[in-house]
Simulated assay, not measured.
Amino acid sequence: MKHYFAHYGFNQSYGIAKDLAKADENGKTEPTKHLASLVFIAFTYESAINHIGELTFPSWKEHFEKLSPEAKLTLLSDKSGEVLDFGCRPFQSFNTIFKVRNALAHPKVSELEVSEEHLDEPDKWPQPKWKSMAKNLKLTDAIADLDAIILRLENSLGIHLPPRLILAAHVAR
């Protein structure tokens, strides 16, 4: 007899993101660790949204999995009756995280003007918008907003993801 285990990847990436975010509680994390945390939060969002999508729509993998994270969240919100407002928390964090993630995953060359008096002062050079967005997003807020969005979807759709400490479970087929 064969046995099957479900591996909950979103719980794995959630644990990593949460551990990285804890180190940032004082806001003094190195920029590279801060960005790594944001990327893991993005992985967690997308993985959790995909799992919720599979539980909500039997044809999720065939028709919806390739959509952008924003489109997936919108689809699930429409189904659940949840109202999205990407200008307010918790959805504002979602929007910021994916803008940063997309800028890192699909880098573009950008030309930013530097004034002559600052040519020898790289600290004063302008930065791409995503860098300031990432720097201004507090990791503990991003994790709290992730939890809030997932909980709202679970409650409004009447489904529940496994507790965050469960990384795998025996499943019946």
Rank of each mutant, 00 (worst) to 15 (best):
A36T: 13
F5E: 12
G81E: 13
F43G: 06
E117H: 10
S132M: 06
K28E: 09
D147V: 05
L75P: 00
S13K: 07
P163R: 15
E25N: 14
A6S: 09
L104K: 00
S68F: 06
P162L: 12
S80M: 02
A6N: 09
W60L: 08
I97G: 02
K138L: 03
S80C: 04
M1G: 14
H106C: 14
N11G: 00
H160T: 15
S110K: 05
R89C: 03
P58G: 01
D145G: 03
E46T: 08
R152H: 01
K108P: 02
K108G: 10
G27P: 05
L139G: 08
L167W: 07
V109I: 07
R89V: 00
L139H: 09
M133C: 00
K135L: 04
T56E: 04
L73R: 00
N136Q: 12
T74K: 15
K129T: 02
W125G: 11
D78K: 15
I149H: 08
I97H: 02
Q127W: 12
E25I: 08
D24C: 00
W125I: 12
H106S: 07
G27D: 01
K72L: 01
R173N: 13
P163N: 13
S59C: 09
S59W: 12
K108T: 13
Y8I: 12
A36E: 08
M133W: 07
L84S: 03
E70S: 10
D24G: 01
L73N: 01
T44G: 00
M1E: 15
L167Q: 02
T96W: 00
D120G: 02
S47Y: 09
Q127I: 08
C88V: 07
A172R: 06
S59T: 14
K138T: 04
A144N: 11
S13A: 02
F91D: 15
V171C: 09
H51Y: 13
Y4I: 04
S156F: 08
F64H: 04
L20G: 01
D145V: 04
A144G: 05
F86V: 10
S13V: 10
S132N: 14
W130G: 00
P107C: 12
L157P: 08
S110V: 15
V39M: 10
L157K: 12
K124N: 14
P90C: 13
K129E: 13
L55S: 11
D78F: 11
L38M: 04
A103L: 05
L165M: 08
H63K: 14
L151N: 09
L67M: 08
L55Q: 10
Q127H: 05
E30C: 00
T140W: 09
N95T: 03
P90W: 03
A168E: 10
D123M: 06
K2R: 02
H170R: 14
L119C: 10
E65F: 13
L84P: 03
R152Y: 03
S77P: 12
E54A: 12
F10M: 13
G9H: 09
K129F: 01
L38V: 08
N155C: 05
I166T: 15
S59A: 12
K28H: 03
T56S: 07
N102H: 04
R89H: 06
M1K: 09
L119R: 15
K66Y: 06
E82V: 14
F10E: 10
K66M: 11
L137V: 04
A6H: 12
A23G: 07
N26K: 14
E82R: 08
G81W: 02
L35C: 07
Y14W: 09
A144R: 03
Q12E: 14
